[in-house]
Design a protein around this nucleic acid. Sequence first.
DNA 1: CCAAACTAGATAGCAACGCCAACTAGCTGT
DNA 2: ACAGCTAGTTGGCGTTGCTATCTAGTTTGG
Lengths: 117, 117
Amino acid sequence: MEVRDPQWLRGVLPLLVLTVLTRGECYGYDLSRQLETAGLGTIKGGTLYPVLARLEREGSVAIRWSEPTSGPARKYYRLTPAGKEQLAAGATAWLAFAERATQLLRTASEEHHDATT
Amino acid sequence: MEVRDPQWLRGVLPLLVLTVLTRGECYGYDLSRQLETAGLGTIKGGTLYPVLARLEREGSVAIRWSEPTSGPARKYYRLTPAGKEQLAAGATAWLAFAERATQLLRTASEEHHDATT
DNA sequence: CCAAACTAGATAGCAACGCCAACTAGCTGT
DNA sequence: ACAGCTAGTTGGCGTTGCTATCTAGTTTGG
C-alpha cells in the first residue's frame, strides 16, 4: 500500500509549502526534500512547481533568482505578508477540520474498547 | 470565511462515511446529517450519493431498500467485511498523514514562542 | 384544493489540482 | 563522451467534490 492517497494533499499542500517557508527563504528542489523529511512522502517537481507558481501569482510568495558560481540557477521563494496571513487563516481552518475528522475516524478504531471516561 | 475548503474532503469523505456506518446501517439523507453534526459541514446530496454509489460498486457497503408505510423509500447502507478492512487501512493511513501535516503546520504558529524543550 | 416545503435519491457537467511523463540545461565524475 | 544529479518547466490525464436540476412521495398552510 502507498504511504498516502494523492488526494489527501489537495488544498493542504500550499499550506505545507508556506509553512516550510516560515523557516526562511528556500528554493523548490530543497522544499521538496524538506517536505519529504517531514514525513509527507515524495513531492515531485511536476506537483510542486505548479503550486509555487500559483502562490506567486496570488502574491503569497516573492521570488529571487540566484545564479550561483556552480550548479543550475535557483529560484528562491520567500513569504510575503499576504502569504503569512493566508497561511495563518488556512492553517487554523485546516487544523480545525483535521481535528474533527480525526475525532470521527478514531471512533471507528475505538468501537471495540469502550473506555467510559 | 467558509468552514472548510472543499478540497479537504477529497479522499477522506469515503472514510468518514464508512466510519459513520460502523455505528450501524444508515440511509444517505441521515448520513449527511450525521456528518454535519460531527462538525464537518454540510455534505449535499450531489456529493454524498455518488460517494455511496462508488462504495457500493467497490463492495465496501451493501444496500437494502426499505419501503416505509409513510415517506419516500430509503436506501439503507451497511458495512461489508471488505468495507471494514478498507476503513481500517484507510483511516490508519490518513490519521498518520494528518498527524504529520498537523505537526508541520503547528510549527508555523509556534514560530514566535520558541519553547526550548 | 393547490402550492410550498421537506424528505429521499439520482444525474450531468464543471473545475480544481495532484500526478506522470517528457523536456531543457548546467554541472560532476569516470 | 556519457551517465547522473541538480533545478526548473510544461502538457495532458484522472479523480472527485460541487452546483444545478430532476423525480417523487409526504406534510402543512392559505
